[in-house]
Amino acid sequence: MRVALISESFLPTISGVTTSVCKVLEHLAENGHDAIVIAPSGAPREYAGFPVHTVPAIAYRQFPVGLPSPHVQRILADFRPDVVHAASPFLLGAQGIAAANRLGVPSVAIFQTDVAGYAARNHLGQATALAWRYVKWVHEGATRTLVPSSASMNDLMSRRVPNLALWTRGVDLVGFHPNRRNSSAVRALREKLAPNNEVVVGYVGRMAPEKQVERFRALRGTAGISLALVGDGPSEPQIARALAGMPVTWLGRLAGDELAAAYASFDIFVHAGTEETFGQTLQEAHASGLPVVAPAAGGPIDLVVHGTNGFLFTPDSEPDLRRCVETLVRDSGLRHRMGEAGRRAVLGRSWHSVCASLLEHYEEVIDERAAVYATTAIPLSLQR
């Protein structure tokens, strides 16, 4: 199979979109498929043995945003893919889907970033409706749109976006593991984060407005805790002001073993933002054996079973967030039981199984497109 991946985000930028694209590329390489990547400028020249083609980009909130380029259709035409994968399509991805249609190639679009939610959160009024119209227009062009959660599915169905299917995300079950807690690296980090044996309440992710990390201020005055924040981003000054005087350790952006060690050093994982279409860090926390506290909104609804592997607090209610965290702080046995339940919940979500499911979607849209051509009796070569 020949797959062209068009991604709005790619290395060196670290994001949920980048992670999933890299895992898909690794899976394609391991299983003998061919692929190319089209991504914003600044990306490496290849990944997993596949060439990476870059297009001009502009910086937005420390992220490169790929701009439509006349080279996209030429790159696709030269490669002649069997399917185009558009990861979180916005500007670049929308162009890729349109080019695929002109070339007669089926496309799979991955809904991963809530653009319309961003407009609503920032009280942009009429822009929210415009954002949804744009999202619908982009995804109507795709042969199939894969959504990560039931909340995203409901949102897109309510806007009558067609050809939807559920595709979750994988998690590294080996790298993120409860056994890491016994390593010397984690013991050393615990001494730094909890010198007096505090309960460590941790967060991993972007320091950006939509993540709403400022809501950790709800924990001010909670006895016996320390906060550990992993990540960076444009909201760091605002978060620092909101949490001033609280016991916070800023660990910065981490990856690989350092990131896995950070998770293993936490006792509780908290995510406060209400705009997650999925919630990859929640899965990583569960894989690490942690109870998770998250809002009852968006992707976390599918990942956290309230009272079993964590708590879902009332969205936008800081008192309820505090109540959930304090319940876990007071009860180490409950933390342990919920952490074990979280680990069990993700055991079937290895990246291998999730990527294998994605390839099934590829094959289905390829077969569907071939059936259309057979029905209309128009040679594929003429369509291209």
Rank of each mutant, 00 (worst) to 15 (best):
S7R: 02
F10T: 10
L11V: 09
P12H: 04
V17F: 02
C22P: 00
V24F: 01
L28T: 13
A35D: 14
I36G: 10
P40L: 12
G42K: 01
A48P: 08
Y60H: 09
F63E: 10
P70N: 09
H71L: 11
A94E: 08
R102G: 10
V105M: 03
V105F: 01
F111H: 10
Q112W: 00
V115L: 15
Q126Y: 07
A127R: 01
V138R: 05
T143N: 13
T143W: 08
T145Y: 03
P162V: 14
L166S: 15
L166A: 15
L166Q: 15
G170Y: 08
D172Y: 08
V174C: 04
S184F: 06
R187G: 02
A188M: 05
P209G: 05
E214G: 12
F216G: 12
R220I: 06
S226L: 05
L227V: 02
P234F: 00
Q238K: 08
L243E: 08
A244L: 01
G245I: 04
M246A: 13
V248R: 00
G256Q: 02
A264M: 01
D267S: 05
I268P: 07
A272Y: 09
A285K: 03
S288K: 00
G298L: 01
L303T: 02
G307T: 04
L312H: 03
E318A: 12
E318M: 10
R323D: 14
C324I: 01
C324P: 06
T327N: 13
T327A: 15
L328R: 02
A341N: 06
W351I: 13
V354M: 15
L359D: 15
I366T: 14
Y373K: 03
T376G: 04
S381H: 07
S381T: 10
Q383C: 12
